[in-house]
Design a protein around this nucleic acid. Structure first.
Length: 132
DNA sequence: GCATTGACGAAGG
DNA sequence: CCCTTCGCCAATG
């Protein structure tokens, strides 16, 4: 990422993060909860979780939460979460780049070239499955 | 305290 | 159709 100081972040852009009022206290815990609900052999995308939570405009935060997920008490199945292309973007964060693929394959998810083959078929959308 | 980054996503050129 | 840029929000340097 080059990011040559394109626009500089505007000072004071701190908006009240209205995250699922009444759900979890932390935005992260909400993400963990949803991630843990992902059935075995199924995968979802960061955007799907973000949309379910309500922060679809900030799918990045979901990925960020996943980063902290590694330190969560029950390990969050972050390996079932991929980007909208079905690509295992966060495989480098599992300690080993092969671990994520291995885990997915173990659950019956076919991974080819760092990408979930039948991603569309096994895609698990919390907004649909859970029907908030 | 400001600048940069980050496991994304959608839109524009 | 591929690549670049912007947006969002939080954390880190």
């Amino acid at each position: 990422m080059k990011q040559l100081k394109k626009k500089k972040q505007l000072p004071g852009s701190k908006k009240p993060s209205a995250i699922k009022a009444g759900r979890k206290d932390s935005f992260f815990e909400t993400v963990y909860d949803v991630a843990r609900l992902i059935p075995k052999g199924r995968v979802t995308s960061y955007g799907a979780i973000a949309a379910y939570i309500g922060t679809k405009l900030s799918a990045r935060m979901v990925g960020w939460a996943m980063n902290a997920a590694g330190t969560a008490s029950p390990k969050v199945p972050a390996h079932r979460v991929v980007n909208r292309n079905g690509m295992l973007s966060g495989k480098h964060h599992f300690g080993s780049p092969d671990m994520m693929e291995n885990l997915l394959k173990k659950e019956g998810v076919k991974v080819k070239n760092d990408t979930v083959v039948n991603f569309v078929t096994i895609f698990w959308d919390p907004a649909v499955e859970l029907e908030l």
